[in-house]
Simulated scan of single mutants.
Amino acid sequence: MLLHYLALGDSYTIGEAVPAAGRWPAQLVVRLRERGVAIDDPQIVAVTGWTTDELSSAMDAASFAPPYGLVTLLIGVNNQYRGRDAGEYRDEFARLLRRAVGLAGGHASRVVVVSIPDWGVTRFAREQGRDPAQIAQALDAYNAIARDETGRAGARWVDITPISRRHPELVAEDGLHPSAQQYALWTEAILPVAAAAVK
């Protein structure tokens, strides 16, 4: 039976500034197929710049075909970038996570949440004169919330933030978004968790 895969997120999920094949959801499908998993190409609901509430609104208008054998969720960087309240993020993220579990047929174990990468280490952040320590602190707080809500929901968590911090040079031409090479490193981290989710 062919598994259906839904990827929810923002620029990091749609792969801003990289070819479609370079996006990590696309790379993940290739790697899962190499492991013998019969999985469809990802259905991606993600747009650069989306916050949690904007993703939620887009989901209201999207056409879904549940249950999905795998759902991934990576959202929140634009909440942080716009200076949104962390408590607001918790509420909206928790609602998105409940929707993700519903789309996975009520199986929280099929939902994989990916942490927010640290854009503060990028050339873009330097050129904007942004404080990398302040960005890191804010993103750590957001990721702590997401990890907590993921555990509470019984979903799966993958922390790719350290990868983004170790490889600030692996960015696309825009100097902000990850390159396909960095997404490949994320995929390595996500793969075993996603493989367990689809078992």
Rank of each mutant, 00 (worst) to 15 (best):
H4S: 15
Y5A: 05
L6G: 01
L8F: 03
D10H: 09
Y12A: 09
T13N: 11
I14S: 07
I14D: 02
G15T: 04
E16W: 12
A20L: 14
G22R: 02
P25G: 00
A26Q: 08
A26E: 09
V29G: 07
L32A: 07
L32D: 01
R33H: 11
D40M: 12
D40E: 14
D40P: 11
P42F: 05
P42K: 01
V45I: 14
V45N: 02
V47Y: 00
V47A: 03
V47E: 00
T48H: 06
W50D: 03
T51C: 10
T51A: 13
T51Y: 06
T51E: 10
T52E: 02
E54L: 03
L55Q: 03
M59S: 01
D60K: 09
A61T: 12
F64T: 02
A65T: 15
G69V: 07
V71D: 01
V71W: 00
T72W: 00
T72S: 06
L74T: 10
I75D: 00
N78W: 01
D85S: 11
D91P: 02
E92F: 00
F93Q: 05
L96K: 00
R98V: 09
R99K: 15
A104H: 06
G105S: 13
G105P: 11
G106M: 05
H107P: 08
H107M: 14
A108Q: 06
S109K: 07
R110H: 13
R110G: 02
V111S: 01
S115W: 06
I116G: 01
V121F: 07
T122Q: 04
A125K: 07
A125R: 09
R126A: 15
E127T: 12
R130L: 15
D131E: 05
P132K: 05
A136T: 12
Q137M: 10
A138Q: 10
A141P: 05
A141Q: 12
Y142R: 04
A144P: 08
A146H: 11
D148Y: 04
D148T: 12
D148S: 14
E149G: 05
G151S: 10
R152D: 07
A153E: 12
A155K: 05
V158G: 02
T161D: 10
S164W: 05
R166D: 15
R166Q: 15
R166A: 15
P168I: 13
D174V: 13
H177W: 04
P178M: 07
S179A: 11
A180E: 07
Q182A: 09
Y183K: 04
A184N: 04
L185S: 10
W186F: 14
T187E: 11
I190H: 01
P192E: 08
P192V: 13
A197S: 09
V198N: 11
